[in-house]
């Protein structure tokens, strides 16, 4: 194989997408970031998608506000995707490349397991929510009464 055919093979090779992680675990509500690297791509648009593996309805807008990013022509383009785990269950998060010409290219899925979260401890918040204003209110009242006595 001569140099020209080698260059042609490289230039005409399909773009690929790699992810920095294969599996993630999160607690519901947690914000996660995954990195993808798009290689050998012509100008294209990359799109993030989330699919439930348990059949739960996924509203992509709830998961991420930025689901599309432009990919410039180049050998390697790194794209960061930030999303929030808003449903419990098992999900596949993946990136699809939409080139100006040619077929779609999908990246490998990142398996995300989202567990339910224990709610905040109501029992502990109530004493603090009552004690702090009560202590400050009492201190304010005592201070005012002392001042009035001192003035009279």
């Amino acid at each position: 194989m001569n140099l020209l055919s080698l260059l042609a093979t490289v230039a005409l090779a399909d773009p690929t997408i790699t992810m920095n992680s294969g599996q993630l675990t999160a607690v519901i509500g947690q914000t996660l970031t995954v990195e993808s690297v798009v290689s050998r791509s012509a100008p294209a648009i990359a799109h993030l998608n989330v699919v439930s593996l348990d059949g739960v309805y996924v509203d992509l807008e709830d998961w991420s506000q930025d689901v599309t990013q432009k990919v410039p022509a180049g050998s390697n383009t790194q794209l960061d995707w930030e999303f929030q785990a808003v449903n419990p269950g098992r999900f596949a998060v993946y990136v699809v490349l939409i080139p100006q010409n040619g077929p779609l290219v999908a990246g490998p899925p990142v398996q995300v397991t989202v567990t339910r979260r224990e709610t905040l401890d109501t029992g502990a918040t109530l004493p603090v929510a009552i004690a702090v204003p009560a202590a400050l209110g009492a201190a304010t009242l005592i201070g005012r009464l002392k001042l009035r006595r001192g003035a009279s």
């Binding site: 607690v27 509500g29 947690q30 905040l120 401890d121 109501t122 918040t125 603090v128 929510a129 702090v132």
Partner: peptide, 21 residues
Amino acid sequence: LSAMTYLAATNRAMNFLEQRE
């Protein structure tokens, strides 16, 4: 702050917040 903290811990809509949020 007391009202907000208590709501964040007990109100079902607000308690959706992750603890760090």
